[in-house]
């Protein structure tokens, strides 16, 4: 079986870079998208094994993208972690209501993110 695929949807280049660096030493294959619409398209095309979704995204918000993914039977069951912004009250609840499998508050510790990825997607 080929390597597990992780799709990271995040508009900030530096934050994408961190995840890229984190996963560079693992066997995961990393896909990236810089806005909600692109993320949705990549997810439907590639059907990744795990999605990391930022809340605040250009074009299509992370929560709306999550809802659309959950509405599609092909992507409905893909584990999806929403990276919430602690700044906006109730983000965590909104994320779970939209259909997230888990949420992670920003700023997150890369170690915590790694642990979460391992939880949903054990490495081969």
């Amino acid at each position: 079986m080929s390597d597990r695929t992780v799709l990271h949807i995040e508009d900030n280049e530096y934050n994408r870079k961190i995840v890229r660096q984190l996963l560079s030493r693992t066997t995961y294959r990393l896909l990236e998208a810089a806005d909600g619409e692109e993320g949705l398209a990549v997810a439907k095309r590639e059907l990744p094994d795990l999605i990391l979704m930022d809340v605040q995204l250009p074009k299509l918000s992370g929560l709306d993208a999550t809802r659309l993914l959950r509405a599609d039977p092909r992507t409905a069951n893909i584990p999806l972690v929403v990276v919430t912004s602690f700044a906006l009250s109730g983000d965590d609840r909104k994320a779970m209501d939209a259909g997230a499998s888990a949420y992670l508050a920003k700023p997150y510790s890369p170690r915590d993110l790694m642990a979460l990825i391992h939880r949903f997607l054990p490495e081969n």
């Binding site: 530096y14 961190i18 660096q21 920003k106 510790s109 890369p110």
Partner: peptide
């Protein structure tokens, strides 16, 4: 928070010797 996430994130992975 977004740039801070990057600062703290990079610092942590640096200290974790991912680089």
């Amino acid at each position: 928070r977004t740039p801070l996430n990057a600062i703290l994130g990079f610092t942590e992975i640096l200290l974790d010797e991912l680089y």
